[in-house]
Design a protein around this nucleic acid. Structure first.
Lengths: 280, 280
DNA sequence: AAGTCCAAATTTGTTTGACAACTTTGGATA
DNA sequence: TATCCAAAGTTGTCAAACAAATTTGGACTT
């Protein structure tokens, strides 16, 4: 308890930083965690017996969700957390490892655990293996993207600042330098979509769009290597950027829809090609 | 690197035991697990030092992904798996618990681990984390919901089977029994939205809608306790259900939009009320 | 002979203790 | 003042043991 405030952490000013340190959250929880072992389940809807490690994992997760733990925060040591939650180190580690594997926490031997940046790409990574394996999933995927991205583009055309519109246009035209460089193009493509997300000024939609984008990324790697696809994509990017520059939502969404359909078709083509090559 | 190979456990007598169904997969993996230390991971983008528990978790995950482990399969005992992978029980348990928390495995004390049904709804947990922002912006939230839910309802009107449409209608009309019971109504409301999601037959959109719904749920608790709100919600639910029963997408989305706007307004009212009571 | 019930064996859940490997910290030295 | 290194701190891993729940097989009953 009397341990020195070791959180020095030269973190840049977080917007609207509350005077809250993660240790505070843990000392709060400390009080709760000590109450008589809830042997019998709480009167929840489902009275499943959950192991302590799962309970603790959910507890930490809820702290992350509620903002008590924020990206970059360093957690207490395992020993301290073990005492706080009232469980042993192996059990605690089961919870910490689970959250690590889900991309919420990260750790290095010798260093402490900390909260990741919680970027959609990181959170989606462990799961994208399960999805996007067959045509059916791809159609679902693009159906979802069509809805989310189109709205995002529409909002972007309406709301993006002059600087943001400029940035979008820059990323679009820069693509012309990558006709022969699929890796470079993919990196730029990420930037382009990110700048679209920023322009729409809606974090929830942005998070969803980025998550959907990331799910398909590995498959699209193959597609972008196919001849002619990059050039066509770049052309469409520029059309979209121009429509946004003119603040024309209808034109922008129309151009984006064409682009997305092109991406879908090339993705499907790439998958068929992939399926042929490793027929077993 | 080389240390992973130094695991020279005293190999117990290789008794040739009964060929348990899933043991086949594990004996394959056993051969792999022993091969010379795979120094750096496959051409992964990042060559980080991964702990053995993470390696094993990915190994099991890849077996699930490739179909070596299928829904319902029972895994070997922890001891057997520990031997197979060449790691200790605590380390193995870190991997198993991680996969359990991700909804890929499940276990009960005394029983063995088994593979879950892998239903998409369990696998999209990360969306919930992505969508949770501590300073919850109601307008952003409903802007996102409007897009996702409306498409979901539209698809539902087009695709839902007769049974699904019936189920939606049932949940809608059942709400009339809960005019005075806000807790019961919220539970039913969850069911209603879930049945809408099922009817749309798109797991990605469903996952996103579910995530958005969950984020707002705790605030809506206050809203649903305000007089008259439940009745109005139930009426709107029935309108939506009727439109879907008639397979009329336009009517359904129109009704749903009205409903969502009502929810938004009551949520805002509830938040204002909440802000007054705990002014700080 | 078939079904039921109970106790033993099996298996996961949890704890304690210990050591190895890596990172961070603080002081000594140039 | 800056650099480097040893000591302290922290995570990674293992081992052994017991508690709690489930499975299993046999004894008992009908």
């Amino acid at each position: 308890m009397a341990r020195a405030a070791t959180r020095v952490k030269s973190e840049p000013p977080r917007k609207r930083q509350a005077p809250l340190e993660s240790d505070v959250a843990f000392s709060n929880l400390f009080a709760q965690a000590r109450k008589p072992a809830p042997k019998v389940e709480v009167a929840g809807v489902h009275a499943e017996r959950r192991s302590v490690s799962e309970q603790v994992a959910h507890r930490i997760l809820s702290m992350v969700k509620s903002g008590n733990l924020r990206p970059g925060d360093r957690l207490p040591t395992e020993q301290q957390m073990g005492i706080a939650f009232g469980i042993s180190r192996p059990a605690l580690r089961e919870a910490l490892k689970a959250l690590s594997l889900m991309g919420i926490l990260e750790s290095r031997q010798g260093g402490r655990y900390s909260v990741t940046d919680l970027s959609p790409s990181r959170l989606i990574a462990p799961f994208n293996v399960m999805l996007s394996t067959n045509d059916f999933d791809v159609n679902e995927h693009f159906e979802a993207r069509l809805v989310v991205d189109l709205e995002l583009v529409r909002l972007c055309a309406l709301r993006a600042s002059a600087e943001q519109r400029e940035r979008i246009m820059k990323h679009a035209v820069d693509g012309r330098a990558f006709f022969q460089d699929s890796v470079g193009f993919r990196l730029l493509d990420i930037e382009f979509h990110q700048s679209l997300n920023d322009g729409a000024d809606n974090r929830m939609l942005s998070a969803m769009a980025q998550g959907l984008y990331d799910v398909g990324l590995d498959i699209r790697r193959v597609a972008s290597e196919m001849k002619g696809n990059i050039k066509k994509s770049v052309t469409q990017h520029i059309e979209i950027a121009e429509a946004i520059a003119q603040r024309d939502p209808a034109k922008a969404t129309k151009a984006y829809r064409r682009h997305l359909e092109h991406v879908r078709d090339t993705t499907l083509a790439a998958m068929r090609k992939l399926g042929q090559s490793e027929e077993k």
